[in-house]
């Protein structure tokens, strides 16, 4: 007996067929899917998901802490060949100036169009909360991030997420202390956008390779590389004129009525530690409410 214990070989032990196990788990899965799809059970499912994300959040924090020494080491090696202060300063300045220029042009264009019609100011003020990113993109096929604040500070699904450079994405799932944000580069993300120079509206969406594509811009319009792309404000989620990025490539096919425009996003979460979740914003003196507040108003 002792002689046979010293050697363990996989693939030789008797295995049960597992059909019963499979049937049980398939039934549980179908039950869960049914519960999720049923609208009446949605709050319960959301609560379960939110609780799970809250439980997992401390582990994500541990990962962030474990990553920091390696990130620091990587930065030291990277910066060894460059002048770190000058590089940081230039990057910061460039980011600031691009955002300022976009904002300035947006104000200017809006004023020129509306000056004769309305005596309105063209500024918007956002109200929201600054949060930390605790995890970025755990899946090759999705672009997402997790932030360290949830319903405890008033975050609700569909709220826009921005940083100093432009749009980051939109809140998808909210738990008590964390939120799951779908990035603008996610293949499932879409937002109405416009070219700042020509005011032509299109649909901006993410893609598998992480690039942004501006669609439905007619090939009769003039589009140049470097043109600034901003939010159109349609849909009411994002304020008009928020910087999305710049046109990186314009492709025109002979058969298509529209350009295939690739956009380089202005915001880059890889270099960010904090982002801003927008609760509501003011456009020309009127407050645009957060999504759930709009729903309440419609109901009333």
């Amino acid at each position: 007996m002792k002689g046979t214990q010293g050697r363990v070989s996989f693939g030789e032990k008797k295995q049960s067929s597992g059909v019963r196990t499979l049937v049980v788990f398939v039934l549980i899965s179908i039950l869960l899917i049914t519960l999720t799809v049923r609208e009446s059970a949605q709050p319960v499912v959301d609560q379960v998901r939110a609780t799970a994300q809250a439980v997992v959040a401390p582990f994500k924090h541990i990962g962030t802490l474990m990553e920091q020494p390696f990130t620091t080491l990587g930065n030291i090696i990277h910066n060894a060949t460059t002048n770190p202060e000058a590089l940081d300063e230039l990057e910061r300045k460039n980011e600031l100036l691009t955002a300022q220029l976009a904002e300035y042009n947006e104000y200017k264009a809006e004023n020129e169009r509306l000056r004769s019609l309305f005596a309105l100011t063209s500024s918007y003020h956002m109200r929201g909360v600054a949060v930390h990113i605790i995890d970025i993109n755990a899946d090759t096929w999705n672009e997402s991030l997790i932030i360290d604040a949830g319903s405890n500070v008033g975050i609700t699904p569909d709220m826009p997420v921005v940083d100093g450079a432009g749009i980051i994405g939109q809140v998808a799932v909210v738990s008590a202390t964390t939120s799951y944000v779908r990035q603008i580069t996610d293949p499932e993300f879409q937002v109405s956008a416009l070219l700042q120079s020509s005011r032509t509206r299109g649909i901006l969406r993410g893609s598998l390779d992480g690039s942004l594509h501006l669609e439905y811009i007619p090939s009769t319009e003039t589009v140049s590389v470097g043109d600034i792309v901003v939010t159109s404000g349609l849909g009411g989620v994002y304020p008009t004129g928020l910087l999305i990025g710049t046109v990186a490539n314009v492709a025109e096919t002979s058969k298509s009525l529209y350009y295939d425009i690739t956009v380089t996003p202005a915001a880059n979460v890889e270099n960010q530690e904090e982002v801003f979740v927008v609760f509501d914003y003011t456009v020309s003196g009127s407050t645009v409410l957060a999504p759930e507040e709009r729903v309440v108003q419609v109901g009333e």
């Binding site: 899965s29 899917i33 999720t36 379960v48 994300q53």
Partner: peptide, 20 residues
């Protein structure tokens, strides 16, 4: 499923069949 936004149970169903 719990960490994402897809319907709860759909990935579990696919992966338990795959594992089997």
């Amino acid at each position: 499923d719990l960490m994402g936004t897809d319907p709860l149970g759909i990935t579990a169903l696919v992966m338990c069949v795959f594992g089997f």
